[in-house]
Design a protein around this nucleic acid. Structure first.
Lengths: 197, 197
DNA sequence: ATATAATGTTAGTAAGCACTTACAAACTCA
DNA sequence: TGAGTTTGTAAGTGCTTACTAACATTATAT
């Protein structure tokens, strides 16, 4: 093991994260990845038996969905619209922190398959269930109309996920005039009026 | 040129569309593409000087955004919610018809670059402007609240685009219990109440 | 029927890929 | 210091890739 610094293995995983997200899994070569991490190519293969195992390590190391689960409990006391805005804000913030990983998930996920897809599906369902629970508890407080909470949760996250992808991954300039805050305000405005009594 | 049948060139483009969408641009080989189209590999290179030029042909041939532009004029006479549902339904229908292309755009678009991105951006902006115009005219009829129409247009399409991608491209089972119609109903319900007076 | 164009067959190139082997150098820690 | 671990260097494997050259075969059209 090295000194107090970042380990060779971690440097490789970090470089792989960067290059996979930039060029895709097939587009990033093991040569590049090792160069980017400042090690010899053979060292990469001493830590990971194959390129695919490196991808798996990247995905499992930098998974961000647990971070998303922490958002919801922290907004319980807020009024409805304020809570929605805060959820959206922190959701986007989390995606931005893990932008490289989001890029990988976005573009490669339908190619590399069932095992990873299962993990994703489980986390996402959990996240949606918790958000749906938030809507249920709010409705008990008498604020909201009747609607399918799970579907509403899906809608809510879709709105902001798509906003993030378009802006940060696809880099389409469509909303260049809109700040995060103004988009959040506009979206939350419509959504909250659509779900309140 | 061949008989009344589909030309060799078209067969190659069709096969490329299929394989690019299934395996990605780098993942699909020219050998596979030529085999899939039933021609010799060398024939592919007689029609297209390079693999990249084939990709460009695929993208420009099967672009579907013009089809989307035709949706809006046809719903002008309908009541608000009915019109929204119809727009959503035909939007999803169009995406499904061009599913292969949507897959390519979805996964490769941030890799292959500025020229294509410009075309996309222009089409999308046009589409959003037209949808924004729809909201403006509805508000003149006194149905709607005040809101940023362009932002609302973006929100509306985002909702259903993300629904489509999750279901048909990522194949995440999240909404397996929901039919297209029930998702459209649920989403449109929230959106229309959020934008009506 | 014959000239022209489109395609097939075969063989090949040069480059890049993931991945390996063998050995020497450096670092870690007792 | 010395033993063990981790890394680097160098060379190379076998495979696949996009792409080409030369020539034979088929289809089309007048």
């Amino acid at each position: 093991m090295p000194k107090g610094r970042i380990s060779t293995r971690e440097r490789i995983v970090l470089a792989a994260l960067r290059l996979f997200s930039e060029k895709g899994y097939l587009g990033a070569t093991t040569k590049e990845i090792s160069a980017e991490s400042g090690v010899a190519e053979v060292t990469l293969f001493r830590h990971f038996p194959s390129k695919e195992s490196l991808l798996r390590e990247v995905l499992s190391t930098y998974t961000f969905l647990p971070a998303l689960l922490e958002i919801l409990p922290s907004v319980e006391a807020m009024p409805y619209e304020k809570a929605l805005s805060e959820i959206a804000r922190r959701f986007i913030e989390t995606l931005r922190l893990r932008k490289d990983l989001v890029k990988i998930m976005h573009s490669e996920c339908h190619l590399y398959p069932e095992k990873i897809k299962g993990v994703q599906n489980a986390f996402l369902t959990e996240l949606l269930d918790i958000l749906a629970g938030f809507f249920k508890s709010r409705r008990k407080m008498g604020d909201l109309k009747n609607f399918d909470e799970f579907l509403a949760a899906r809608l809510f996250l879709s709105m902001f996920y798509q906003y993030f992808i378009t802006k940060e991954v696809l880099c389409l300039g469509l909303v260049s005039n809109y700040s995060d805050d103004s988009v959040i305000e506009g979206y939350v405005n419509i959504f909250s009026r659509g779900t309140k009594k």
